[in-house]
Amino acid sequence: MSLHESLEQPFRPNFSRTIRLSWLNLTWLKRYRALLIPGLILGLIVFAGLFAPLVAPYDPNAIDIGNALSAPSWEHWLGTDQLGRDYFTRVLYGGQTTLFLAGFSTLVVIAIGLAVGLISGYVGGAVDTVISTCLTVLLALPNLLLTLAILGILGPSNQTLLIALIGAGWVGHARVFRASVLSLREQVYIEAAKALGFSPWRIMFRQLLPNLLPTVVVLATLDIGAFLLLISSLSFLGLGSQPPAADWGVMLSDARPYFTQVPMLVFAPGVLITLVVLTCNLLGDAIRDLVDLKR
């Protein structure tokens, strides 16, 4: 083992501690029990969304207007909506859209946040001053307002919704990551790496990034929940998916006039939004506890 390699060894993700498991020994179950139930529920919902075309009994846009607003039955497990479309099918397809939007925006937001945070935090100096000033300015704008403004200019659709969410969402993350990098780069092993003449890129990606991963995972799980709520709120206001497609927020909004007579139209997407956000938050919490070094 060369000096380089031995120096790099301990810098692998702190995850490694948690990944080195005795898989044959069932104690791991005890350790991960906090992940189990939310993980299962979320997994089920994501699975149903991913495989909506296979799981769903009907075409989501097939209209049977003579059979509109019917109550749950064997043919239609969650009843039908105001156009007679099978609600169970629409909930599945709606979940596909909603979860994709939330998942994708989370990924991109984290990626942009990481890139900007790493550069700003590690390079420091004038670059950091410029970037962090920009971040401060952008942070002064309320997130929802910024999102609405972007959507207002670009017009509503799924693509513009993504652009707006990402455009307004990465700023906070960049700041968090920058702060983490600022504290990490004072660590001895970074100094050692510098002393060994590693290139800045190598330090950023091989030393700093892995050590940021716990923060990333926790932020990401919490983010999915937050984005899902934001997407649902924006769709609820008519700025999300456009007809005939629907996500859960649109379905909630469309269901409002019928709420007193067909409560299922509000409950189905409402409960699912709640469940996904809840399980994401619980997962985030559990992962945070697992990877928390200070414990």
Binding site: L252, R256, F259, T274, V276, L278, D285
Partner: peptide, 21 residues
Amino acid sequence: RRLSDLVRPFSLVLFVIFLAA
């Protein structure tokens, strides 16, 4: 903290129910 996490996601649904009802 978990309790507050529990409550937060309900807000949109509660909001809708509130509006409707």
